[in-house]
Amino acid sequence: MSLNMNFIKELKEIVGVENVALDEPMKNHTSFKVGGPADALVYPTNYDMVKRTISLCKDSNVNYFILGNGSNLLVKDGGIRGVVIKFCKLNKITVESNKIIAESGAKLNDVSTAALNSSLAGFEFACGIPGSIGGATTMNAGAYDGEMSKVLYSALVIDNEGEIRSLSKEELELSYRMSAILKHGYIVLQVTLELANGDRDKIKARIDELTQRRCEKQPLEYASAGSTFKRPEGYFASKLIQDAELKGFHVGDAEVSEKHSGFLINKGGASAKDVLELISLVKAKVYEKFGVELHTEVRIIGEDN
Rank of each mutant, 00 (worst) to 15 (best):
R165H: 08
R165C: 14
R165D: 01
S166I: 15
S166C: 11
S166L: 13
L167S: 07
S168Y: 13
S168T: 15
E170M: 12
E171D: 14
E171N: 08
L174A: 04
S175N: 11
S175C: 08
R177A: 00
S179F: 04
A180R: 09
L182E: 11
L182Q: 11
K183Q: 12
H184T: 07
G185A: 09
Y186W: 13
V188F: 03
V188K: 04
L189M: 10
Q190W: 08
V191N: 06
T192D: 03
T192P: 03
T192H: 07
E194L: 14
L195F: 08
A196H: 08
N197T: 11
D199F: 06
I203D: 00
I203V: 09
I203S: 01
R206I: 07
R206T: 15
I207Y: 04
R213W: 08
R213L: 13
P219G: 08
P219V: 13
P219E: 06
L220Y: 01
A223V: 10
A225T: 14
A225L: 05
G226E: 02
G226D: 03
G226Y: 02
S227D: 10
R231C: 11
P232K: 10
P232T: 14
E233C: 02
G234L: 13
A237N: 04
A237Y: 03
K239Y: 13
K239W: 14
I241S: 05
Q242H: 13
E245M: 06
E245F: 15
L246W: 10
L246H: 07
G248A: 11
G248H: 10
H250V: 05
V251Y: 01
A254R: 04
E255N: 03
S257P: 04
E258C: 06
E258T: 12
F263L: 09
F263D: 01
L264P: 02
I265T: 12
N266E: 03
N266W: 00
N266Q: 06
G269D: 08
A270W: 01
S271T: 15
S271G: 03
A272P: 03
D274G: 00
V275Y: 03
L276P: 00
E277D: 11
L278H: 01
L278P: 01
S280A: 13
A284C: 07
A284V: 08
A284E: 14
K285S: 13
K285H: 10
Y287P: 00
Y287E: 11
E288P: 00
K289P: 00
F290D: 03
G291P: 06
V292W: 04
L294T: 10
T296L: 04
V298P: 01
I300P: 07
I300R: 07
I301G: 07
G302Q: 06
E303T: 13
D304M: 10
